[in-house]
Design a protein around this nucleic acid. Structure first.
Length: 260
DNA sequence: ATGGTTGGCGCCCAA
């Protein structure tokens, strides 16, 4: 089962890029974030045309929005709302796997809960995610959690851990909380089974750096976590960095995992 | 220390 997560930053604008990506990679399941489209305007026909007959989405005008596109039947789906009514989560059960697709709040610029409500909400969102999984699921189930988690937890998930230590996405408080969410439940960071922790690994490069490829100041904000059952056989994983080089790219690139 | 770009909407906000 080939699964991909991608913060596409406007699905309607980047439908041609999605089409090219599908042609190249043929994933079975696609989890998208920042679709930025209200449900009545969702391009369902285009998704079906790409070969994804089973589609679920939860969107809103202008902001946020998530979707799951599947080649295999979706047996059940649901959305969790941890933060206002933002459309930041959708889950679907497909072929015996429960897939959770999250778009965690970015958290604003100032990494201080006392003065930045966005940062406070980001941390609260992570707490509520953790509580939901501990209360409602266990690690012996077949669960895949993907999405733009807006945190680069490891030293080599950013270009300079030292220079980013006070930058939202790589502060100690965020890194600790994301690691707690992963470890308390028993999720495994799937791409890091393939790419060692000593190696730089990114899924996002800022639009603001036009020289992004040369300077390579990236961050790994997009994640795929799996329960132990799903890695009893060797998995593979990759990051489609070339998608960042195309004309009119998202600032995030697709992260893939193949579960045998 | 600062600013840089993008998308969606509508003259600015979030990322």
């Amino acid at each position: 089962m080939k699964i991909v997560t991608w913060n596409i930053n406007s699905l309607r604008l980047r439908m041609p890029l999605l089409k090219g990506f599908v042609y190249e990679y043929q994933p079975d399941i696609i989890a998208l974030q920042e679709t930025k489209v209200a449900d009545p305007l969702f391009p369902l026909g285009d998704c079906i045309g790409l070969g994804y007959r089973y589609v679920r989405f939860s969107g809103e005008k202008s902001y946020n929005g998530v979707a799951i596109l599947s080649k295999y039947p979706i047996e059940e789906s649901f959305c969790l709302e941890f933060y206002n009514h933002d459309k930041r989560h959708i889950a679907a059960r497909i072929a015996g796997i429960e897939l959770h697709n999250f778009y965690v709040p970015a958290g604003g610029d100032e990494p201080d809960e006392a003065i930045n409500p966005k940062f406070k909400h980001k941390l609260s969102y992570l707490d509520l995610m953790n509580e939901w999984f501990l209360k409602n699921r266990n690690k012996n189930q077949n669960i895949v959690l993907v999405g733009d988690l807006n945190i680069a937890p490891l030293e080599h998930d950013v270009w300079s851990s030292k220079q980013l230590r006070n930058i939202v996405s790589h502060t100690d408080i965020e890194r600790t909380r994301l690691n707690r969410n992963m470890n308390e439940f028993g999720f495994i960071d799937a791409p890091r089974l393939i790419f060692p922790e000593t190696e730089k690994l990114y899924s996002w490069w800022s639009y603001r750096n036009l020289n992004w490829e040369k300077s390579d100041r990236g961050r790994r904000l997009d994640h795929i976590w799996v329960t132990p059952n799903l890695v009893t056989k060797p998995i593979s994983s990759s990051i489609a960095k070339e998608m960042r080089k195309l004309k009119g790219p998202s600032d995030h690139v697709p992260v893939l995992v193949n579960i045998p």
